[in-house]
Amino acid sequence: MPRPKETFERTQPLTFKSPEEVLEEETMYTTYEIARLLQGLDPGWELDAETESVLLDWAIPWIMVNADSFVFAAPESDDEPGYYGLK
C-alpha cells in the first residue's frame, strides 16, 4: 500500500552501477550470476528460489537498459541459461 513520503526517516537516490563496475571484462555470466553481483554477492552464492526471483526482477531490466555494453553467447543446450559479458 502506498505511504506518504514523510513517513520514511530517510530517502536516497536510486542509482545503479555501470556494467563495467560490476563485471570482469574477460568473463561471461548468466543472468543469475549478474543478479548476485549487482547485490555485492559472490556469483556462485546459493540462494533460495524466492530471493533469486527478486534479484532477477532487478537484474533483467538493468541488462536491458545497458544492452549496448553487452555481448551474448547462446546456451549450449535448451535447458541452460545464456551468458552475457562486456563488449
Rank of each mutant, 00 (worst) to 15 (best):
Y29Q: 04
G85N: 03
V65L: 13
S18N: 06
K87W: 14
A49G: 05
I60H: 08
A49C: 14
E24T: 14
V22R: 05
E26L: 08
R36W: 01
W62H: 13
D42E: 14
E52R: 12
L56C: 10
R36L: 05
Y32N: 13
A73C: 14
V65W: 07
G85C: 06
E76G: 06
W45K: 13
F72I: 14
S53A: 13
K17V: 01
E24F: 02
K5Y: 02
V65F: 12
F72K: 14
W45H: 15
D48H: 02
D57C: 10
L38Y: 01
T30N: 07
T15W: 01
T15L: 05
T7W: 04
P19R: 00
M64F: 13
E21T: 00
I60S: 04
D48C: 11
L14S: 10
Q12D: 08
V65H: 08
P4V: 00
V65K: 08
T31I: 13
E25W: 09
R3P: 02
L41F: 12
T27Y: 03
L38W: 03
V71Q: 12
T7N: 04
E52W: 02
I34D: 00
L37A: 05
E52Q: 14
Y32I: 07
A35L: 11
Y29A: 00
Y29W: 12
F16S: 13
P81V: 06
N66L: 07
E33G: 09
G85V: 03
E46I: 14
Q12H: 11
A35V: 08
E25L: 10
R3F: 04
L55S: 01
L14F: 10
E76L: 09
F72E: 15
K17G: 08
L56E: 03
E6I: 07
Y32M: 11
G40Q: 01
A67F: 13
D78N: 11
F72V: 11
V22I: 15
E9W: 07
E25I: 14
S69N: 11
G44Y: 09
A35D: 01
G85I: 00
P19W: 01
T7S: 15
G85R: 04
Y32L: 12
L55V: 11
A67P: 10
E76H: 03
E33Q: 13
L41M: 15
M64S: 14
N66I: 05
T51W: 06
N66M: 08
D68N: 09
G82A: 09
P61D: 01
